[in-house]
Design a protein around this nucleic acid. Sequence first.
DNA 1: GTAAAATAACTTGTATGCAAGTTATCTATA
DNA 2: TATAGATAACTTGCATACAAGTTATTTTAC
Lengths: 227, 227
Amino acid sequence: MIVPAKNPSETNREYAFRVISENIISLEIEPGSMIGEQEIATILGLSRTPVHEALLELSKSKIVDILPQKGCSVSMIDSDLIREARFLRITVEAALVEDACELATEADLQELEENLQLQEFYLKKDQSKLLTLDNDFHEIIYRICNKMQCHYMVSLMSMHFDRVRNLSLRSVKDLKIVSDHRAIFDAIKAKDPVAARAAFQKHMARFDLDWNIISQEYKQYISDGKN
Amino acid sequence: MIVPAKNPSETNREYAFRVISENIISLEIEPGSMIGEQEIATILGLSRTPVHEALLELSKSKIVDILPQKGCSVSMIDSDLIREARFLRITVEAALVEDACELATEADLQELEENLQLQEFYLKKDQSKLLTLDNDFHEIIYRICNKMQCHYMVSLMSMHFDRVRNLSLRSVKDLKIVSDHRAIFDAIKAKDPVAARAAFQKHMARFDLDWNIISQEYKQYISDGKN
DNA sequence: GTAAAATAACTTGTATGCAAGTTATCTATA
DNA sequence: TATAGATAACTTGCATACAAGTTATTTTAC
């Protein structure tokens, strides 16, 4: 488990939530493995209380399963939950990119452009930074549309999806993510909602294709075996 | 504060969450009022811990605001958050009713029909039961589409919306909710996704009209004053 | 040696006490 | 009386202890 330094401005609970989340998404903690509150508390130098509260929040999205009086396990990769997360993101964000065509200011467009520059820069240098930049890109769109509360909800569920996206970055060589983002950006800048929705849906459709590769290569992390 | 009996199968935390939620949505606890953990814990006959955890979960949807070392307040009626909740519901459920046209089995249709019968029955008898039946109707659609996790996320945000819907039931006499639901049901039964989406959007559009009435009649509960 | 029962070592749920910070009240001083 | 400062009474965040339930181990009986 990778333990970054605690940000002084965050509470112990927020710190625990952040560290556990990052380790789950990065697969540093393996899907299906058991994690105890006391164990994590000791590693982070905290008591059980803030860790317990962090795990409670994570359990709401079923990214961890709390089994009372038994323990807490990181969820296996679950195609149903990934489908839900994907459905939620596609549905919500397809509507958002349309709205963004109307709402985006010049400053907003510049912020998106800046993010895209970094994506293109790190595409060949450090793909691990792409995940963060991808998240940022989508978050900016939520902010443009004044839908940050929706972003929190979608993000929580997207953790299932993010884990797979992480696998995808390892196993799929020919990434089109960055050029997809530029197509979405171009449509928003051109104030063309039809093109924006189309570009976004094309972007998200790629993860359909990846699933077959992932499900074979990482079979040990996938629940049930079906799909 | 109305305190229903504790269900033996639920934990103290779940009980606290349920009671607090119900009292907020029903406006039994007034928007803007302060609620202390110890105060609620005493009323419910619990310690602070499960109450604290319940309030933490509620704070994630901003339906309560936790002010560290100061207290916990029930949020004022916030048009931005209502808009977000409404956007999320409309966007997600419009997509769901389309999918339900394909996925609904005979048993599913019968369950919806049964719910509709009860709605029509209670429309003139006891409107307080309509809110629950309305929630049930929408939940059945989530279940048909196997999107219960999305339902949890949308429900949490919808509490902002539900409070207003409650006001709406008081202030708006001519309710079309039940006939709206029947129109949605008919479209799903006819496996007509275009009609289903249209009927659903017509349904949700009513709350636009209600807002003006609500914002004037219940001014003291509304944050800021703008909109 | 095997199986069943007792027990010890775990887990999370909850209660309680203290720490740290905010707010209201009371007191002192001009 | 008005104002500033000290203080007492609150609040939530967190640590710790215990309760209740599960699992692994050990012991005992055959």
